[in-house]
Design a protein around this nucleic acid. Structure first.
Lengths: 347, 347
DNA sequence: TTGATTTATTGGAACGTTCCATTTATAGGC
DNA sequence: GCCTATAAATGGAACGTTCCAATAAATCAA
């Protein structure tokens, strides 16, 4: 019961009547060992309740087989799905990734990265926390540790990025709204300290311009990227003199918030006000009404990132191509045509 | 750029013109070192781009400061919240927990546990995967490693458990339904290989019996603990000769599925069929109609589990009290009275 | 000045592995 | 029988820390 001094390969060696080197070789599955000897050793390993000390091994081997995944928000199903996609790939490569959550806190992120590095990880996949300072990854870069970013990029960093085509996604969604006869459009949620925000907002703006929506007929409301943020955005938008009739939301959480706020005001999402989300989390298809959203295949991007990381480790390089994942607009029930525009047409 | 041989305390010592012992002491913040010397050393640390090798340190120190959290399903917001609760506690204790996902796969769980142990974790918090074999944790127990279970318990294990009061929660929810005049009740979702299932179903059964619902008027449908499972459960239930008018669901995901299936059949959840969930995930309050559910405070239980773990590590013990968390029923809009019963009364 | 005491610093062994260079045992060729 | 080739097993140094015991330097009491 009491934790006796834990067994080492020397204990195994004694138990099996061989040398520590032999035990080491058995542990590594070497074929230099006679099968009967290996069997004997394996039995001893069981008997003494041995657990391998990877720390000691890494001291000699230099390269571990653990990879760190640093996620900005695990409670967001979008990032959770991405993490699971990565895990799938690593599992089949015989690697156990350790996940750490930063909760969008750059300080926490710093601690987490430090700890992971001290642990001697072979590589790092990071979805950076909001407000990450540009220098936060310099230590890692100078250490020559393979690292990739997912979903988010940092302003002037040269670290490879695996992310969806935010610009095109926003463009598609905006074009869809315009195609439904909406003429006064809003962009809801997000804040300008995120590169993703600029990408999505940029797509929105360009689509508006290209498809003949005047700048004065567009409204941009920054806000939290959560349901609460969405609720707030809608409130401010509807308080305007000439409120928009449709909104592209920074992400699905914001969109859900907008739909809730509409309902609370007795308005029907889709019929009375069109809303499009971004990310297409699983909940999107289950909401009432089902949410039209830009699908980014988070799990697929996670897998991709994992593959890139594996290749980097294998080829001992610290460079890799960026990958911009395809997106597509999944049209559901949350954006009918602008009613007033419709009526105007018919009349 | 190319990864030069990484710096060690010896490099620092040379750079700063002191001995490695001095560097080691500085690293540990010892007050045996003259402040000016410490400063000099710290500068050298920066200059050579040193990263601490915890593996090497653990070789001597025996006790690491990393804790493993093994979660059965990170994509389930219920478990994600719990994980975040734990993290909060560990963070303020200066500990970085490593999270690993098992995706309800006992084989994967085995790998993950092995890897965590090899890494030399100081303790383990585990939410066991479904179908975990009873012997899966023997290695850990014999190693004398502190371990606690959260949310789920194993049949004959003596490992401490932090879990909600499932029995009472189910009792409360069932009583609520009966109080709403429902007389034919169902229990939807879950499967009997989970202890939690028996606890919740037991609460349901006892409440029925105590409050005068005959066993033949209750229906139990096993199923996946997901939306899909909920949909399937409702289908089979409504295909019965005398279908139930209300259901307690194994968890919220099942409840969401049931509500979706009702809508698909043109029935209104709440008015036409009452549904109660379990866990009270954040989405519950945002659904239409808002879901009545048994709140278990997953984040709180996570925090509790983390505290227990810290205490175990600190007191070098492997035993701890079980903790059964209080639950309470959050009544929202998803269960009106049985219409027929109501009409019968009025007539 | 000398010896005792305190304050800073240091060398060296130890931790549990891996892996190279050896040694020992086994087999084959003649 | 001896020599060589192959197969199997082994000892020892090294990896980067910590920490004890020891030393060196500074301070103090006499």
């Amino acid at each position: 019961m009491a934790s006796r001094p834990k067994a080492t390969i020397l204990d195994i060696a004694r138990e099996a009547g061989v040398s520590k080197s032999t035990v080491s070789l058995v542990l590594q599955g070497s074929d230099l060992i006679r099968p009967e000897t290996a069997l004997k050793v394996r039995k001893a390993i069981e008997d003494v309740g041995y657990v391998y000390n990877r720390g000691a091994a890494n001291l000699r081997k230099a390269h571990s087989n653990v990879i760190g995944m640093v996620i900005n928000d695990l409670t967001n199903p979008f990032f959770a799905e991405m993490a699971v996609g990565m895990e799938r790939v690593f599992q089949s490569a015989g690697i156990v990734p350790f996940i750490a959550n930063t909760a969008e806190n750059p300080v926490r992120q710093e601690e987490v990265l430090k700890s992971l590095m001290e642990q001697g990880v072979a590589g790092l996949i990071v979805s950076p926390a909001r407000g990450t300072t540009p220098g936060a990854f310099r230590r890692i870069e100078t250490a020559g540790l393979p690292i990739v970013f997912t979903m988010r990029r940092l302003p002037e960093s040269r670290i490879p990025v695996i992310a969806p085509d935010n610009h095109r996604g926003a463009w598609l969604a905006t074009a869809h709204l315009i195609g439904k006869r909406h003429r006064r459009l809003a962009f809801f949620g997000g804040s300008s300290d995120l590169v993703v925000y600029h990408e999505r907002l940029g797509g929105f703006r360009e689509a508006c311009e290209a498809l003949g929506i005047a700048k004065r007929d567009t409204l941009v409301v920054e806000g939290e990227t959560s349901r609460k943020g969405g609720i707030a955005c809608l409130e401010t938008a509807l308080a305007m003199a000439e409120p928009p009739t449709a909104a592209l939301c920074f992400n699905d959480a914001v969109a859900f918030g907008v739909m809730l706020a509409l309902r609370k005001r007795g308005l029907e999402p889709g019929a009375d006000f069109a809303v499009v989300g971004f990310d297409d989390v699983i909940e999107a298809q289950h909401y009432m009404p089902a949410l039209t959203s830009v699908a980014v295949d988070s799990a697929g991007l996670g897998e991709r990132a994992a593959h890139v990381m594996l290749k980097m480790i294998q080829s001992r390089t610290t460079r890799a191509e960026d990958h911009i994942g395809a997106v597509n607009l999944v049209v559901r029930d949350s954006c009918g045509p602008d009613r007033r525009a419709g009526m105007g047409d018919a009349a």
